[in-house]
């Protein structure tokens, strides 16, 4: 198609450029701030050229925030969420799309509702459940009178408790239980022709085999996309880890970064050490950026090798 629209071209490029600026300026400021000393950063007017303190600041931020431990924790959290999500969502979507059973629509809608109720909205009940993951079962037992029955028969008071606070499980599970991935898979599974399913059936493949040998390889690019999104999402988690973790040995980078950012609590009325906060920000940004860059190459490969 040939289009000659010079004015439109200029305008669109201007808009793109403005967008680029809006994205890059904060990044640049972060980087500059991370290279300055305490005195330079407190200057007025603020200094916009980088200094030479980058590695000093990074080292200082690293030790002060105990990032060695926090990075390990964040990696465990992120990979846990990615793995759990990729597997759980694939299985849920598989059940919703390929099986015709009576509970199909109810389950679909239950999953759909979680899409409208993200973790932030239901954070208080989720916390209550995390404090004792067996609360719902206890409630069922109590409501049905079963616990009284058991107490009456055996003399044992039923008291179920499984505390998830301050544990990796508690960090990971609530982030896995959301609907986004399920929908991504569902949309893809719906595009798979019925004939393919039937051909596999004729070849004798059962449902589990079909999922593992056909659907998973076919959804490679979807899995890559979902993994990327979920990695960045869980790496950046702040609110939930803040609530569920009180033991610093389970702390994650995003929360720790919050502690680096100067406020009256952390500085104790001292000077705000923005250069360290920015250096910390730079470190924390690296893994998600790497993941995106790495996975992006993977998407592209998946897209070029389109086997119809």
């Amino acid at each position: 198609m040939i289009e000659r629209t010079p004015i439109l071209n200029i305008v669109t490029h201007l808009i793109l450029f403005v967008g680029l600026l809006m994205l890059m300026v904060p990044l640049y400021l972060t980087f500059t701030a991370a290279t300055l000393t305490m005195e330079q950063i407190s200057q007025i007017p603020p200094r916009l050229l980088p200094g030479d303190q980058l590695f000093v600041n990074i080292a200082e931020a690293w030790t002060r925030s105990d990032f060695s431990q926090k990075f390990v924790n964040s990696f465990i959290l992120a990979t846990g969420v990615v793995t759990g999500k990729v597997i759980l969502a694939a299985m849920t979507a598989f059940g919703i799309v390929f099986f015709n059973h009576r509970l199909r629509m109810p389950i679909f809608w239950l999953v759909f509702i979680t899409l409208m109720l993200p973790l932030e909205v239901r954070i208080v009940p989720t916390y209550a459940v995390a404090a004792n993951a067996l609360t719902p079962f206890q409630a069922i037992l109590d409501a049905t009178g079963l616990s009284r029955l058991i107490a009456w028969i055996s003399g044992v008071e039923v008291h179920l408790e499984w505390n998830l606070l301050n544990s990796y499980t508690g960090l990971i599970l609530p982030l896995v239980a959301t609907a986004t991935g399920t929908f991504l898979y569902r949309q893809f599974f719906l595009t798979i022709p019925d004939e393919l399913v039937e051909a596999a059936q004729m070849d004798g493949a059962g449902p589990v085999r079909f999922l593992i040998e056909h659907l998973v390889p076919l959804s490679r690019t979807n899995i890559a996309a979902l993994a990327t999104i979920m990695f960045v999402y869980s790496w950046n988690q702040y609110l939930w880890p803040l609530l569920v973790v009180t033991d610093p040995s389970y702390g994650v980078v995003a929360v720790e970064l919050g502690h680096l950012v100067p406020n009256s609590n952390s500085t104790g009325g001292g000077d705000p050490q923005w250069h360290l906060a920015m250096a910390g920000t730079l470190i924390v940004m690296v893994p998600p950026v790497l993941v995106v860059i790495f996975m992006q190459r993977w998407f592209v490969r998946g897209l070029i090798n389109t086997d119809k």
Binding site: P193, E195, L196, E198, A199, A200, H214, P217, L218, D307, K308
Partner: peptide, 9 residues
Amino acid sequence: FQNYALYPH
């Protein structure tokens, strides 16, 4: 099958 239904992967 009509559309062959070969396994693309």
